[in-house]
């Protein structure tokens, strides 16, 4: 589904260049729910932004399905973002002037493919994520958790190959966090979505199939959940983070 090979990315601050990604390689398979964890400055968000093609990588390969993202022109990239990727941001990035339902439909409207079926799918997503009752409300009128579930529904409206989520629970309380994680699980189980999530939160990451831990711009460790129960997997994640801190 998604293959990242030897990805490098540097930022220039004044005359100093900071290398944030130093050859990251990873693979996300279809239907997988993968989290990327790591301390601040480890390169998590930069990795996500490179995969989203929001910022260009310095070198390395990025392949989504059979498409080499780095080779795409601007319009083709826009189409990939619209049709093959779904985005969930920490700050939700919902448009205040649109209702919940309209926000969910936005990627389809941008893609010019709104039909009765699309509208029915938007309504279905509302029901799946428990926001059917607020579909006609505006973002200013709903809670943070509801906003993020709206963002998840929006990310799924165009049947994307991959959902990219950047700290989706970063601005939420524990109740909303649970609701959003539940919505990701529903998206995975009911809609066969593939999810790639960047998070600081070991609780949120413990719901994933696999967790990639980044440190100083490289993959430090990958942990598979397998058949481990969630609480134990969270303990394993915390142990790994502690171990990383000791090194």
């Amino acid at each position: 589904m998604l293959t990242v090979e030897n990805l490098h990315k540097s930022y220039q601050v004044g005359k100093t260049s900071y290398e944030v990604l130093k050859g990251v390689s990873l693979h996300v398979g279809k239907g997988e729910f993968v989290a990327v964890m790591g301390p601040s400055g480890s390169g998590k968000t930069t990795l996500l932004n490179c995969i989203s093609c929001y910022i260009p990588a310095d070198s390395g390969r990025l392949r989504l399905g059979k498409t080499e993202l780095a080779r795409l022109g601007e319009d083709a990239l826009a189409e990939v973002r619209n049709k093959q990727l779904g985005f969930v941001f920490q700050d939700f990035l919902l448009l205040d002037g649109l209702t919940v339902r309209q926000n969910i439909l936005l990627p389809a409207i941008i893609g010019g493919v709104v039909s009765d079926m699309t509208e029915a799918r938007a309504d279905q997503l509302c029901e799946v994520f428990g926001i059917g009752g607020i579909r006609d409300k505006y973002p200013a009128e709903i809670s943070g958790g509801e906003k993020q579930r709206t963002a998840v529904a929006r990310a799924l409206i165009n049947h994307p190959l991959l959902i990219l989520a950047d700290e989706p629970t970063g601005n939420l309380d524990s109740k909303s966090t649970r609701a959003v994680i539940r919505s990701f699980e529903q998206a995975k189980s009911a809609l066969e979505a593939t999810i790639f999530m960047v998070t600081h939160d070991s609780y949120a990451a413990s719901f994933c199939d696999r967790v990639v831990i980044l440190r100083d711009g490289v993959v430090w460790r990958e942990l598979e959940k397998g058949t481990t129960d969630r609480e134990k997997f969270q303990d394993l994640l915390l142990d790994a983070v502690r171990e990383m801190g000791r090194e």
């Binding site: 989203s52 826009a78 990939v80 973002r81 990727l85 985005f87 936005l106 990627p107 941008i110 929006r154």
Partner: peptide, 16 residues
């Protein structure tokens, strides 16, 4: 800019 950014992030083309 925020509105423009959201449109671009969701796959709108610059021409659009």
């Amino acid at each position: 800019s925020r509105e423009t950014g959201v449109f671009l992030a969701l796959g709108a083309s610059r021409a659009q």
